[in-house]
C-alpha cells in the first residue's frame, strides 16, 4: 500500500483497517488502493449476488438456485471518499463442516479478517439463516446483518422486528429488498460505520451449551488468550479445537493463529503511518 493513497483519517488508530493484507494477498485478494475489505457471506440463494451487483455496479448474472456462486467474485465501491473492496463468498449453511465452499468462506472470514462481514439473510427463513449468523458472530464482531427479501416476507405475511433482532445479535441489522434496491443506501452507510470501527460491538455468543461444554470452553479459551493475547475469537478457536477441526488444529500448530493478532500487523502499519505524516 503506498502512503499517498491512504486518506488522512486512517492515521487515527480507531479507524485503522483491521484486514490482514498479507493474508488477503495469500488468499488472492489484492488490497492495494483499497481502504477496507468487505466480505459478503450468507446461506445459498439469499440474494448475495444481487446485493454484490447492487453494491459494486457489476452485472454478474444471478441465478435463482443454491450454489450458483462457487468461485469468489470481487468488486468495489466508494463511500464517503473511502474505497471498499467487496468479496462475494460462496453461500453456505454453516461453517462447521468441511466442504470446499464452507472452507473458502470460513478461511476468508477467519484468516482474511475482513474489516466488515456482511451476512445476507433470507428473512423468510430467518431461523435457519441465523445458524450461520451465530457462527459468524463467534468469529468476528465486525458484522452487519442484511435482512434481505423483505418484499417476500411481506408477501408471505411475515413481520420482522428488526430492531429487537439487532439488540439480540449485538450488531447492526439492515432490512433490504435487493432486487428493487430498497435499503441498500442504508446498508452502505452501515458498512462504512462498522468499517471505521468507531462503534465497538459485542455480538451475541452462543449460549445454550451444556455446562460441561461451557466450562471446557472457558478453560481452553483462557489458555488460548494467554498464548495469543490479541486474538479476537479465542472462544471460537476453543470450540473448533474441541470439535477436532483439522484446519484449526493445523493453524495452531503452525502458528498461523498468532499472525491474526492485530499486534502482529500493527507494526508495518505504524511505520507506514509515520511515513505518511507530512514533513
Amino acid at each position: 500500500m503506498t502512503a499517498e493513497f491512504k486518506p488522512a483519517s486512517t492515521a487515527a488508530c480507531e479507524t485503522c483497517p483491521v484486514h490482514q493484507s498479507a493474508y488477503l494477498m495469500k488468499l488472492g485478494v489484492d488490497m492495494q488502493n483499497w481502504d477496507y475489505a468487505v466480505a459478503l457471506a450468507g446461506n445459498p440463494n439469499t440474494g448475495k449476488s444481487t446485493i454484490f451487483n447492487a453494491l459494486t455496479g457489476l452485472k454478474q448474472h444471478t441465478g435463482n438456485w443454491p450454489g450458483k456462486t462457487v468461485t469468489r467474485a470481487e468488486g468495489g465501491f466508494e463511500h464517503a471518499g473511502l474505497n471498499f473492496k467487496v468479496v462475494d463468498l460462496p453461500g453456505t449453511y454453516s461453517l462447521l463442516s468441511t466442504t470446499v465452499d464452507e472452507e473458502i468462506a470460513r478461511d476468508f472470514i477467519l484468516f482474511g479478517q475482513p474489516d466488515v462481514t456482511v451476512v445476507v439473510v433470507d428473512v423468510t427463513r430467518l431461523e435457519r439463516n441465523l445458524n450461520l449468523v451465530l457462527q459468524i458472530l463467534e468469529i468476528t464482531d465486525r458484522a452487519v446483518i442484511c435482512l434481505n427479501l423483505m418484499d417476500e416476507a411481506a408477501r408471505h405475511g411475515l413481520k420482522i422486528a428488526h430492531r429487537s433482532l439487532a439488540r439480540d445479535l449485538g450488531v447492526p441489522v439492515v432490512p433490504t429488498t435487493a432486487r428493487s434496491g430498497e435499503g441498500l443506501d442504508h446498508l452502505v452507510r452501515t458498512i462504512g460505520e462498522v468499517a471505521s470501527g468507531k462503534i465497538k460491538y459485542s455480538p451475541h455468543r452462543i449460549q445454550n451449551l451444556s455446562p460441561a461444554l461451557t466450562s471446557a470452553l472457558d478453560r481452553l479459551s483462557v489458555h488460548i488468550e494467554n498464548l495469543y493475547p490479541a486474538l479476537p475469537n479465542a472462544r471460537w478457536v476453543a470450540m473448533r479445537l474441541l470439535d477436532g477441526d483439522e484446519r484449526i488444529t493445523q493453524a495452531l500448530e503452525q502458528g498461523e493463529l498468532g499472525h491474526l493478532s492485530p499486534a502482529a500487523t500493527n507494526e508495518p502499519q505504524a511505520i507506514q503511518n509515520l511515513e505518511s505524516q507530512p514533513a
Binding site: E127, L130, L158, I160, H204
Partner: peptide, 10 residues
C-alpha cells in the same frame, strides 16, 4: 439460540 431469537422477532 437461533430458534429462540427467531421466535422472538418473527
Amino acid at each position: 439460540d437461533a430458534s429462540r431469537i427467531a421466535d422472538r422477532v418473527v
